[in-house]
């Protein structure tokens, strides 16, 4: 399952990444590593980007990119 499938409000653990390396390096630099726990907070208006909580801060990313983050719930 990917972060895209996670329901708003639920918590999961990052397992691994797929796809676009550019995005992967960005995410890892922002501290999203395999093993880290994240909470999906909400989806933006018009079915836009999603908001996450990770490591004491809030991050937003697009839904297409969320499909590249594999998670365990």
């Amino acid at each position: 399952m990917t972060l895209y499938d996670l329901i708003d409000g639920e918590i999961a653990t990052v397992k691994s990444f797929t796809g676009n390396m550019e995005l992967q390096s960005r995410l890892v630099e922002m501290g999203i590593l395999p093993g880290i726990r994240i909470r999906r907070i909400k989806t933006a208006p018009m079915n836009g980007p999603i908001e996450l909580k990770v490591r004491d801060y809030h991050l937003s990313l697009r839904q297409v990119d969320a499909r590249n983050i594999l998670i365990d719930q």
Partner: peptide, 11 residues
Amino acid sequence: GKSSFVMELPP
């Protein structure tokens, strides 16, 4: 240049 939207929502 690829488009990305990895953005912090600061408090």
